[in-house]
């Protein structure tokens, strides 16, 4: 009973939060509701006894949204509403609505059909941290490694882009002055 109540509560909260994210013109509202929605999603993982995924959802998305906040802080005044110049097109609404519908239909199939079965059903013998590890390092090893290499590439590219003037430090300019005084 409690699980059902919790499910509907968090489902409603998540949907409300994401609706605010999409419709709000204030960057601060949009991002805060995005963060809240991401954290409410983790509740579903906890309800499904997938503790590890739930916690990872919290950790990963709180960090990721925090980075978004940093960008918003740099680019716009978050206490004011953003004026959007390009009016939304109807075709965009239509297509995104259809995609969402399609996703819902795909995820409905296990309920409608009996022939779809879980490849890796929950087992009580191993905890779900181990279960995630086993799946990740057997069946999905290649995608996992490819993703790791892509992240590495992205990290190196980011460092190179940022490091063009890295040896020129603003705070260390004072040190140069000390050096000159020492030479005298």
């Amino acid at each position: 009973m409690f699980e059902v109540v919790a499910f509907y509560l968090f489902a409603a909260l998540t949907i409300v939060m994401f609706v605010i994210t999409v419709t709000s013109k204030n960057a601060l509202y949009a991002m805060s509701s995005l963060a809240a929605g991401m954290i409410f999603i983790s509740a579903f993982f906890f309800l499904l006894d997938a503790d590890f995924l739930g916690v990872v959802q919290i950790i990963v998305y709180s960090g990721a949204v925090m980075a978004l906040y940093a960008f918003a802080m740099m680019f716009m005044d978050t206490t004011k509403e953003v004026k959007e110049n390009n009016p939304p097109k109807k075709i965009v609404f239509f297509l995104s609505g259809m995609i969402a519908l399609l996703l819902v239909l795909i995820l409905l199939t296990p309920i409608i059909s009996d022939k779809v079965k879980a490849l890796y059903p929950m087992s009580d013998e191993i905890g779900n941290t181990e279960a995630v590890g086993i799946v990740l390092f057997t069946k999905y090893l290649v995608p996992f490694e490819v993703a790791a290499i892509m992240l590495l590439v992205a990290m190196i590219a980011g460092i190179i882009l940022a490091s063009k003037r890295m040896d020129e430090s603003i705070t260390l300019k004072i040190d140069q002055e000390i050096e000159q005084k020492g030479a005298e």
Binding site: A35, V55, I58, S62
Partner: peptide, 17 residues
């Protein structure tokens, strides 16, 4: 929960929001 450590660290991280 069997991921107590991660949970505590994650939720403390949210605290900085």
């Amino acid at each position: 929960m069997n991921v107590g450590l991660l949970f505590v660290l994650g939720v403390m991280g949210i605290g900085l929001y």
